[in-house]
Amino acid sequence: MLLYKTKKIQPEQGNRLLISITVVGSAGPIRFVVNEKELVANVLNTALKNYAREGRLPVLGSKLNDFVLYCPTVASEDLSPWETIGSFGVRNFVLVKKPQAENSILDRKQVDMARKGAGSWRAWFNKSLSRKIASY
C-alpha cells in the first residue's frame, strides 16, 4: 500500500510583497512580508507591532488612529485604511504620527497666561526655583 502526502489546498491569497516602511525620526525602515490584498490598516498595525517588538526609538505607541501611512512616490495624500496595500504598485511607504490635539491645548494655556499678564516677580521667582529643584 502506498502512502501519499496530501497537500492542503489553500485558497488563493494573491502575491506576497516585501514592503519597507520608513518611520519619521527612526534610524531605518521596517521591512516585512505582506499579502498584496492586505488592508492598509492591517499593515499599519503590523508595522507598529514590529516597531515596538524591535525596541526602536522614538517610542510611538500602538493606537492606529494616531498614525498615517503615506506613499511618497504615488501621491502626497495619506492612504485610506480600507484600501489594499498592493493597489498602489509600490513597496516603499512612510509612517507619520498625526499632529495631536494636546499641542493645541498647551498653546491655549500659553495664550491664556499671556492674556492674564506675567504676574508678580515673586510668583515668577518661586516658579523658577521649583523647576530647578525638580530637575535636580
Rank of each mutant, 00 (worst) to 15 (best):
L3T: 12
K5G: 11
T6F: 11
K8M: 07
Q10F: 12
N15C: 06
N15Y: 06
R16M: 14
S20F: 05
V23P: 01
V24W: 01
G25P: 07
S26K: 01
G28W: 01
P29H: 06
P29F: 04
P29E: 10
I30D: 11
R31M: 10
R31K: 14
F32D: 02
V34F: 02
N35C: 15
E36S: 13
L39C: 04
V40D: 04
V43G: 02
N45R: 15
T46I: 08
L48D: 04
R53G: 01
E54W: 00
E54Q: 14
E54G: 00
L57T: 14
P58E: 09
V59F: 08
L60K: 08
L60M: 12
S62I: 04
K63V: 05
N65R: 11
V68P: 00
V68D: 12
V68Y: 01
L69C: 06
C71R: 02
P72V: 03
P72I: 03
A75Y: 01
S76W: 01
S80T: 08
S80P: 00
P81R: 04
E83S: 15
E83R: 15
T84M: 07
T84E: 12
S87Y: 04
V90H: 09
R91I: 09
F93V: 05
V96Y: 02
V96D: 07
V96F: 01
P99Y: 05
A101K: 11
A101W: 10
N103K: 13
N103F: 11
D107M: 13
R108C: 07
Q110C: 12
Q110A: 08
V111P: 01
D112W: 04
M113Q: 11
G117L: 05
G117Q: 05
A118Q: 09
G119V: 02
W121V: 04
W121I: 10
W121K: 13
R122I: 07
R122K: 15
A123C: 02
F125N: 08
N126E: 13
K127D: 06
S128N: 10
S130F: 03
I133F: 05
I133S: 07
